[in-house]
Write a protein that binds this DNA or RNA. Structure first.
Length: 270
DNA sequence: AAATTCTCCTGAAGGC
DNA sequence: TGCCTTCAGGAGAATT
């Protein structure tokens, strides 16, 4: 599923191919995404030049002089660059054509979104209340400590709260907590500041590393075969419940936190 | 206000 | 082989 590193990888992958290019046509085959694709989007985006491809949290921003297309890949979405003549397959919901080139949105579960705004995209209702970017200096130990001390939820739920920090999904929250040796269910207000500072460092490290590894995914992405699992073999705990801890050998456990499976090592994490 | 639960959807996996 | 059930999962909406 697209986590922040994959969205950023996607951004870096498509940006050089569409920045400065003008949209010749937009085809919406199925507008039934998380929210309906606005009817006016196709007409408004057509004829516009993409000035910049931005990202906020897991939202991709195709910025033009007239407005900005806001895309979210949900959990099964992907963007591919293809020849415009490529026949669409099932779940290929939107094409943004640039002459002979096509940027195609594919999303089987339709949890993704494609919106349109003519105003400042950062002021859009979907973006305006989001927390800081995890890789920015605004997300540091002091910040997380200040937030955590006033909340009474599990630390993992706090990390995954987009109002606190964006882009940290189930995989990276799970991995960062393992690396920091913190039990995912520990109350966030009962974690010392030094440990929170370490946790922040681990969040940044795992995201940085995954983005760096995203280069490989990027080529696959551009070539067409959306190859999965580029990071999977390096995961310490995510999806490994029942298997031995790679650090100490203890059988990993899993329990639900906020409706989400959360794997952890009962020996390494406290 | 914050915490919790519900919801969207499809494909994969498991049971029989 | 195949049908039925269960579940995952981002994140906004609804509820407590």
């Amino acid at each position: 599923m697209p986590e922040l590193p994959e969205v950023e990888t996607t951004r870096r992958g498509i940006a050089p191919h569409i920045t400065g290019r003008t949209v010749s046509r937009v085809i919406v085959r199925d507008a039934r995404l998380r929210w309906p694709v606005p009817r006016r989007l196709a007409a408004d985006l057509a004829g516009q030049m993409v000035e910049h491809v931005g990202r906020r949290a897991k939202y991709l921003l195709l910025e033009t002089a007239r407005g900005t297309a806001i895309l979210h890949l949900g959990m099964s979405g992907s963007l591919r660059l293809l020849p415009a003549a490529s026949p669409p397959r099932t779940h290929d919901h939107v094409d943004v054509l640039f002459g002979e080139q096509c940027l195609r949105l594919h999303d089987p579960r339709r949890f993704g979104a494609m919106l349109w705004t003519e105003d400042d995209p950062l002021a859009h209702p979907r973006l305006r209340d989001l927390g800081p970017e995890p890789l920015s200096t605004a997300f540091d130990g002091a910040y997380l400590h200040a937030v955590a001390r006033h909340r009474r939820i599990a630390i993992k739920a706090l990390l995954m709260d987009g109002h606190v920090v964006v882009g940290v999904g189930n995989i990276y929250a799970t991995e960062a907590l393992f690396r920091a040796g913190i039990h995912p269910q520990r109350s966030c207000r009962r974690i010392s500041r030094p440990r929170l500072e370490q946790l922040v460092g681990e969040v940044k490290a795992v995201l940085d590393y995954a983005i760096a590894r995203g280069g490989t995914t990027l080529r696959d992405f551009l070539n067409e075969s959306g190859q999965p699992g580029y990071f999977a073999q390096e995961l310490f705990v995510y999806g490994r419940a029942g298997q031995p801890c790679k650090r100490c050998g203890t059988r990993l456990k899993s329990r639900a936190i906020g409706q989400r499976a959360s794997a952890y090592c009962p020996s390494c994490q406290h």
